[in-house]
């Protein structure tokens, strides 16, 4: 078995790389695939928190590399889903404790026994990024519709284009706020794609549910009713090659808004 190694990266911090990794990983595992999540943010690990696994970590990726344990021993199984496991980052070390070849070796070993290896990349374009990208053959670039995040994403896309091993780079637009797009105060999905010019794999709406799900250490994909959870499940399906339409976030919710929208459409036709 040769699984796919997908790096989840962004350049800018705080746009939702780790949340995305946790949710896509969980969704893929729920769909019956064997998934390993690797946290490569050495010294600033958080993926364990989002999965609620922080108390179960015994060994980290640095322990594996420095041969204090076997790779299998360091994999922490998810509480709910036995298909999902986590290789945690070391909290007491920095990015220099690992190099690109070592990470590539780990990815190569893990892909032999898993369908998916998702690599959660640290922010920045230095060593940590180079490490995370080393073993990957696909990339998902996470950005938000803000100038600074898009600029950094553009930089990352440029860097990924120089990596021969990475055959596909896709965009995940996070924290989209339809009401702001409607009032022309936020760049729309089309605006962002027009600028970055890479294929879209998902649009995730801003959802306050993310905060509570993080508090509980439970990815939002497990919440059947949450819109962001649905959006992440759709991303997982697209990764699996299914064609899933993007969520229509523009749909107005109130009765008056619906009437108004109907008339606005009518006016355009006339």
């Amino acid at each position: 078995m040769t699984g796919r190694v997908i790096v989840i990266t962004s350049g800018k911090g705080g746009v939702g790389k780790t949340t995305t990794s946790a949710n896509i990983g969980t969704a893929l595992a729920k769909a019956g695939h064997k998934v390993v999540l690797i946290d490569t943010d050495l010294g600033l690990r958080n993926l364990d928190l989002l999965l609620g696994l922080e108390n179960r970590i015994v060994y980290t990726i640095v322990d594996v590399i420095e041969e204090r344990c076997k790779l299998k021993q360091a994999l922490v199984k998810d509480k709910k889903n036995p298909n999902l496991s986590l290789l945690a980052a070391a909290q007491t070390r920095d990015k220099t404790a690992v190099n690109a070849e070592q990470l590539k070796e780990i990815c190569d070993t893990l892909r032999e026994e898993n369908d998916f290896v998702l690599v959660d990349c640290p922010a920045g374009i230095e060593q940590g990024f180079q490490n995370a990208v080393a073993g990957a053959n696909e990339a998902i670039v996470v950005t938000t519709p803000e100038m600074s995040a898009i600029r950094d994403a553009d930089r990352i896309i440029g860097l990924l284009a120089t990596k021969e091993e990475i055959s596909s780079t896709k965009l995940l637009l996070n924290r989209v706020r339809p009401s702001l797009i409607k009032s022309n105060e936020m760049m729309s999905v089309d605006d962002v794609i027009g600028i970055l010019e890479i294929p879209l794999i998902g649009i995730i709406p801003e959802d306050t549910g993310i905060i509570t799900s993080t508090n509980k250490g439970e990815p939002i994909v497990n919440d059947e009713n949450a819109l962001a959870g649905k959006a992440y499940r759709n991303v997982a399906q697209r990764i699996l090659g299914e064609e899933v339409p993007f969520l229509d976030l523009d749909e107005p919710k109130g009765f008056m808004a619906k009437i108004k929208n109907a008339f606005a459409k009518l006016k355009v036709k006339v």
């Binding site: 803000e146 100038m147 600029r151 553009d154 022309n184 105060e185 936020m186 760049m187 600028i195």
Partner: peptide, 15 residues
């Protein structure tokens, strides 16, 4: 001119 078109134009230039 909404703030989003300002952002788009500034971003295009800087990129």
């Amino acid at each position: 001119e909404a703030s989003k078109s300002v952002a788009t134009n500034r971003l295009k230039l800087v990129l």
